[in-house]
Design a protein around this nucleic acid. Sequence first.
DNA 1: AATGAATGAGAGTTCATTCAT
DNA 2: TATGAATGAACTCTCATTCAT
Lengths: 209, 209, 209, 209
Amino acid sequence: MNYSDKQIQILTTAERLFSSNGFDGTSVRDIADEAGVNIAMISYYFGSKEKLMEALFSRRSEDINMQIESLLHNEQMSSLQKMESLVDSYIERVMQKQQFFKIMMCEQVINKNPAIIKLIGEMKKRNIESITKLIKDGQQKKEFKKKVDVLLLMNTLIGCITQTMLTLEYYQEFNDLQNVPQDQFFEQIKQKLSIHIKFLFKALLNYEA
Amino acid sequence: MNYSDKQIQILTTAERLFSSNGFDGTSVRDIADEAGVNIAMISYYFGSKEKLMEALFSRRSEDINMQIESLLHNEQMSSLQKMESLVDSYIERVMQKQQFFKIMMCEQVINKNPAIIKLIGEMKKRNIESITKLIKDGQQKKEFKKKVDVLLLMNTLIGCITQTMLTLEYYQEFNDLQNVPQDQFFEQIKQKLSIHIKFLFKALLNYEA
Amino acid sequence: MNYSDKQIQILTTAERLFSSNGFDGTSVRDIADEAGVNIAMISYYFGSKEKLMEALFSRRSEDINMQIESLLHNEQMSSLQKMESLVDSYIERVMQKQQFFKIMMCEQVINKNPAIIKLIGEMKKRNIESITKLIKDGQQKKEFKKKVDVLLLMNTLIGCITQTMLTLEYYQEFNDLQNVPQDQFFEQIKQKLSIHIKFLFKALLNYEA
Amino acid sequence: MNYSDKQIQILTTAERLFSSNGFDGTSVRDIADEAGVNIAMISYYFGSKEKLMEALFSRRSEDINMQIESLLHNEQMSSLQKMESLVDSYIERVMQKQQFFKIMMCEQVINKNPAIIKLIGEMKKRNIESITKLIKDGQQKKEFKKKVDVLLLMNTLIGCITQTMLTLEYYQEFNDLQNVPQDQFFEQIKQKLSIHIKFLFKALLNYEA
DNA sequence: AATGAATGAGAGTTCATTCAT
DNA sequence: TATGAATGAACTCTCATTCAT
């Protein structure tokens, strides 16, 4: 999709508002006001509030899917390296697009818009396929142990990151990091998460129970 | 709080609808209709839609807090046993109260009602305190390793469980379990989760990186 | 009518609330709460909110009518004395029952409840008759001039008093009497009004234009 | 303020309904229905029912204040002439805007909307100032006597007119004028009032008690 | 292509009253 | 006689969307 500046302005504002007030808690009037456009523009450009949400989802999920593709085709890395690279990539994506991942999380719960459900399903399916393939490769190369539950592994990855994203404030407060600039804090938390999850993955992929 | 049958009927219906449509996506009319009560009863009993949500939260968080308390006072278990027991307890709670945990997840994102924010904060604080204490005990008894990041450990626990809860359908489909009765499927997934998370925790609490 | 303590409590509270919030701006719940009785009592005792208003009106207008009757039958006073006595009596009544007169003023404007309209009409008719008779007597005794517009005279009396009642705060502020105790301030204003209106009446009843 | 036709239609309807049913006794639905506009237009144009009332008040009080200003700057009249002109002007205004003055009277009693209270206060203050100035001028020119209570004079003016306005029906009935066309009746009553109040004012401003 | 005006539908809440006890 | 529980109706206001321009 090729969006005009105004359309991108709307999408960006919608993402921000949806992520902090929820879809039903955000009115198109709010979006239009904050985006500095006429209310009618939203229906005019996107058709409806729901379609706006779908456009927003399409835009982000395209981004995300492209990143995954490129990652796995790097032939020079070992399976574990690929997996670790995927972990970092995922951490990076979630932390960079926090707003979108918050929206996605809520949409997974609410589950009302079929188009969104479909998009999420496709993302998830593609994720599962990629990781399954990666793990099978690793198993063939004896890098990974035989029995790996791909879904639980994925849920551990995604759950741990999103849960951390949801509780960033607590982390900041608990570790007395309130005065650290946000950029720096984000870098710190990304590194912590990276080490933590890689450690978990090594256990899941190598150690026998 | 002592609620009448009708009040419980309202709370139960609200929990179901909030969990599947979100707070803003559920109208008090919907709740009243499905609960089979007059629409005015909701304001009459709870004061407002927001207060209804708060009542719902109070009720569940009381439940949950009580469960945690009782668990940690069992003196006959080792620290690891306690931790594992806590894991199972958490899995059980989330799977049993899926609706409530979905609501809580969305509320953590949306973050609008101060009373709810406070309740969630208190639950989280209590969780952190309990687990911190448990881990310190384990470290004193040399059962656990020195360096443990309590928050990341908690996020792993909670994130993994909730993420699994959110994707139960995918799990069912992926593992061809569509024909298994729901009860049985839930038991299976709880066991899988239990083993998985206990394995992770053993790694986190014992193995050096 | 013989009212029980509770009924009087309700009537008194209703008078206070109606006078400061208007009839439609006061809910029976407010009245019941402030009167310390069950909500259902109001319908139970008085039939409805409207009937309560009517009861309130009946009660006060009986009071007021009785006062007028007794006044005019005093045979020892001159016509002017009687008229001046009536002025003072009216000032006293309005200042003592400010709440009721405020309600009555609004009801005269709003004019919706037929029973109230009738009561007000009767009060007014009785007033007009009494004053007409008084003036005719005075004219026969050559105390008063020939041409007197009874209604304008009455409107001057009532209008001046009620307008003053409505603007007591301004009077207090304008004359720097904010620190005078209310009782004392009321006495002062009653005396001012008395002198003022008697002066006007003397002009209206004696001086030729 | 520049209002569109529809807005003026709403304001006019609201004025009529507020004056005959009171603010709380009038629903926005009633106004919208009778004004022939969609119910949502009222919030759309004025923000809320309260704001509509405020707009109505602002509009009328601007009118009224302008009239007063222009009056007092006529240098060719004597003080008494000015005062009499002011009396006529006031009678004219009240009789022409009966609905608004009824609303204002009730609002003075009910006293709930701060914006309205402020507007009324300002009108009153301006009135007092103008009349005070006028009287002082007259006193300097020896046209008026020394001791004049400005507030009681104003209350007599306003009270007498408004009380007459409130009881027009009685006046009509009492003087057997039911068959006189309304326009003609209004002219008659205005003349009566004019003579009556001017007579009172001459007494108040000239005769010693 | 873009928009201010306008709208029907539905939101949460409060209302006066009634009913079973 | 007295009342807590309950209710249908009506309230004000906001919603996403449409339409004429």
